Computed example of a mutant assay.
Amino acid sequence: MEQIHFVPLLLSEIEQYLRGLIEASPRIIAALVLILMTWVLAKLLGSLVTRLARRARLRRNLTEVLVMLTGLLVWLVGLLVAITLVFPTVTPAKALTTLGLGSLALGLAFRDVFENFLAGLLILWREPFKIGDHIAVEEKDVEGLVELITVRDSHIRRTDGQRIVVPNALLFQNPVIVRTDRDVRRTSIIVGIAYGEDVDVARSVIEDAVRCVDSVRDDVRDIQVFAQAFSESSIDFEVTWWTGSKPVDIRSSRDQVVAAIKRALDEHGIEIPFPYRTLVFKPAAPMTLAPARPEDDD
């Protein structure tokens, strides 16, 4: 008996659902058409943003982010309107309130993710550094070549070949040294000469030797050679010059400059001293023989 009463009840429920679906079919069709129009509008606006970004010469990653944000905004508005069409009792204000509460909960749960996302947007927009720059965050022991910048993290390739994936919040909240912001960078070494050598002659020899090195950019800034200090076994000169800003440029130029200075000092007979150590020993105490004791004679 229960099965006999259950079947008509089930058929009645299905009939009500079908009747409601038929009554709501115009609204559902309108919502589907609106979603299709939203998709088309998102594509058109994305293409428009891409063209405007190219004219403004924005970097590719920033252009992709702007296209993504534009699409999200269009889809948000389109879906809200579609929901109100299908469910007339749900107003846009109620939908936005529900969405706002959900966004707040998501923001608290994924605070670090959104923090890195916003930092990535600001980095892409302000462009404090770009792909191909050599940067360093000394407080976090991060240094290398920027290979990729996304809205969440940046990929840094160290000089030893290892890749570091750095959250954008770290790069945004800490001082970042952009070593390749300019094409040239200053570097320096310390050169010591013996105390018996003429300081002015040695300075001139060192300066001429550095000026003849191809990697030295004396067209940007002049070479500087200053007597710096009295060391233990030498008078030290600080030699400063400008060369390429990449780490390999610095190492290569320093190698050439050291070799040129050594060769020039040797040719002019100027001594490059090495530390001297003088060992002084106290005079030995005189040795006296103790008198023999009587019992030793026995």
Rank of each mutant, 00 (worst) to 15 (best):
I4Q: 00
H5T: 01
H5A: 01
V7C: 01
L10A: 12
L10I: 11
L11Y: 02
S12R: 07
I14M: 15
L18Q: 14
A24E: 03
P26T: 04
P26H: 11
P26D: 09
I28H: 15
I28S: 14
I29D: 06
V40M: 12
L48R: 13
V49G: 07
T50Q: 08
L58V: 04
L62A: 15
T63F: 01
E64D: 14
V65G: 10
V67W: 14
L72I: 05
L73Y: 04
L76I: 04
V77G: 07
V81E: 13
V81T: 14
V81G: 12
T84F: 02
P92D: 05
T98N: 06
L104Q: 08
A105N: 01
L106N: 10
F110Y: 08
F110D: 01
R111V: 03
V113E: 02
V113M: 08
E115P: 00
L122I: 05
R126L: 03
F129K: 07
I131V: 13
V142K: 10
L145C: 03
E147M: 12
I149Y: 08
V151L: 15
V151F: 12
S154I: 04
S154P: 08
R158K: 12
P167T: 05
A169M: 05
Q173I: 00
V176R: 15
D183C: 00
V184F: 15
R185H: 05
T187N: 14
S188L: 07
I190V: 06
G192V: 03
G196M: 03
G196R: 15
D200I: 06
V213S: 10
S215F: 06
S215Y: 09
R217Y: 06
R217W: 05
D218M: 05
I223W: 04
I223Y: 04
A229C: 01
W242V: 05
V248H: 10
I250N: 09
S252D: 10
D255F: 08
V257D: 05
A259E: 07
I261C: 02
K262P: 01
L265E: 02
D266K: 15
D266G: 06
E267G: 04
E271H: 09
E271K: 13
Y276A: 03
T278L: 08
L279N: 07
K282A: 10
P291A: 06
E295Q: 11
D297L: 11
D297R: 13
